[in-house]
């Protein structure tokens, strides 16, 4: 599924003070692409993700995903759209503590139209042998992999990840990212990761840099740039 942003702006108003969270953003993301959005804190990364994914609405501008203009959708339509097309992974795993691994994944599967089998997805994220464990019995990286499986199982066309490795150590973060990359390759899912960590950008097809609520750079990554190049060039 391709995504197109045209002159998207989001303004937060507090009395007479106007704060731009996104300013005149124009962007096109191709079907199956792996995108990393980079930027410092307060650059508007999360707002951009919220708006693209229909979790929030823009103040002006147009967002279309394939032929659907999501900026014109009402709450019910957005819910249905998310249900059928989108998957989310957050920094916090938000697993339901009363459910075991397989059941947590089932929460995502229940809303899918043509979902994957739970075991198949757990196999992909390397947790099949731990499917009966409860979240408190897992490490942070394992919990994040459960939340990835929960997002993937309903076969979303686009996956949004907001700082998916933010709460993990470096080694575990690498594991989680490799899982995400693998899923992108296996299932051809459009993958959009938001992070302030330039090293994650090394794995992406394209890198989008934000600063002060604006897209300041869009960089192709066919040659697999280094973290240093991503950050400074």
């Amino acid at each position: 599924m391709g995504i197109k942003l045209e002159e998207v702006t989001k303004i937060y108003e507090s009395g007479e003070i106007k704060t731009y969270a996104c300013k005149n953003m124009n962007l096109e993301i191709k079907d199956g692409e792996f995108i990393v959005v980079l930027g410092p804190s307060g650059s508007g990364k999360s707002t951009m993700l919220n708006i693209i994914s229909g979790l929030d609405t823009p103040t002006s501008g147009k967002i279309s995903i394939d032929k659907d203009i999501i900026s014109d959708m009402n709450t019910k339509e957005l819910t249905k759209f998310r249900r059928n097309n989108l998957g989310f992974i957050f920094q916090q795993y938000n697993l339901l503590q009363t459910l075991n691994v397989a059941e947590n994944v089932e929460v995502g599967r229940e809303v899918g139209i043509d979902p994957f089998e739970i075991d198949e997805v757990l196999e992909q994220v390397g947790l099949l042998d731990q499917k009966h464990k409860y979240p408190y019995q897992l490490s942070g990286g394992e919990q994040q992999r459960v939340s990835i499986a929960r997002a993937v199982v309903k076969k979303p066309k686009i996956m949004f990840c907001d700082e998916p490795t933010g709460a993990l150590d470096e080694e575990t973060a690498k594991e989680v990212l490799s899982v995400l990359k693998k899923l992108n390759e296996v299932y051809k899912t459009t993958l959009i990761i938001i992070t302030h960590n330039p090293s994650i950008g090394m794995m992406a097809d394209r890198i989008i840099k934000l600063n002060s609520a604006e897209i300041v750079e869009v960089k192709e990554n066919k040659n697999r740039l280094s973290a240093y190049e991503i950050n400074w060039n």
Partner: peptide, 29 residues
């Protein structure tokens, strides 16, 4: 991070067996 160490929840979860997870949640919560 609250854990699922409540034994009753575990028992109920087992009793509910392979019911749909949304139905299970209704009880477990």
């Amino acid at each position: 991070v609250s854990s699922n160490k409540n034994k009753l929840t575990m028992v109920v979860s087992k009793l509910l067996g392979k019911k749909r997870v949304t139905k299970k949640l209704k009880h477990l919560l």
